[in-house]
Nucleic acid binder design. Sequence first.
DNA 1: TTTTTATGTCAGCCATGTTGACTTATTTTT
DNA 2: AAAAATAAGTCAACATGGCTGACATAAAAA
Lengths: 162, 162
Amino acid sequence: MADIKTPANPLFLREDDLRQGIELLFFAYRDFTAKADQTLAQYGFGRAHHRVIYFVGRNPGMTVSDLLDILKITKQSLSRVLGQLVRQGFIIQRPGTIDRRQRLLSLTELGADLERKLTEEQRALVARAYKAAGAEAVDGFRKVALGMINDTDRSRFRPTTR
Amino acid sequence: MADIKTPANPLFLREDDLRQGIELLFFAYRDFTAKADQTLAQYGFGRAHHRVIYFVGRNPGMTVSDLLDILKITKQSLSRVLGQLVRQGFIIQRPGTIDRRQRLLSLTELGADLERKLTEEQRALVARAYKAAGAEAVDGFRKVALGMINDTDRSRFRPTTR
DNA sequence: TTTTTATGTCAGCCATGTTGACTTATTTTT
DNA sequence: AAAAATAAGTCAACATGGCTGACATAAAAA
């Protein structure tokens, strides 16, 4: 009685619920990026710069190819923002030691400062939402979000076991 | 023993967890939009067109101002894509009956067809993620996502009570 | 030695955001 | 009735950040 199998089309998969899911993503992402965008504008940077700074900060010593795989944009598009960040001293490139064709990317002090500033804002937003929702809801959020991510990138995240 | 209050800084608010939350949003949104973008390209449309088609489909008879409030872009930006959609017969405008300055927006048959096609893809993605995560996780996802949305737009969603 | 790979560059195109100035029709306020 | 405010639209110019295509260089791999 307690363990009735969920039917093929359970209640939470009604059209309206799925639409709501779509809208939640739209509004959440819109507001999630809004604040950082303002900060970036003060530096003359855009969202693309933020992504680069973020992921390089998260994976110091990563290669340009690594970054391209994550961002899923062309190297020409990346080159534009990456070049600016390097020239303005937010990111340094050094040749790979094993493979000297590679350019290993990391943040400078300046870059790390900006990264902290930007990420701090977003962390605060996530923290507020997490706190308000509670630990259990956070687990649910993780599961659902992971399910929307393609298999390759899903494996970037540590297994759901906490 | 079972009802220990969560401390001021519970485990799921550790820096790494918050970063993970940030990344989940980034990857989920990236993959969430990828498929529809491909379909749109076949029509010579972009993501901006999709948003307009989506929200007009969702709120038939909405005004231009309503749409601007949701999208949070300028009327000049909206005008570009809205104009194309109207001229190409995806959306019709009719003057408001109470306030004749308003232009009430709705989808034509053609627009509704495209809306269904686009939304169907995203609904399938959300459905897959929801199904894999389970009803409880979906509730958690909703709570967290709602917490990231500003107060005004949060009230667009029906109360969390199911 | 040849081929492939990692990275970078130049040039140009497109979509979509912005600001600012101005118009028209209609409603609201005075 | 006149004046002000509002809903919508328009023109022009500019910035960001995607894209394609072609080509270059250095280093690694075959």
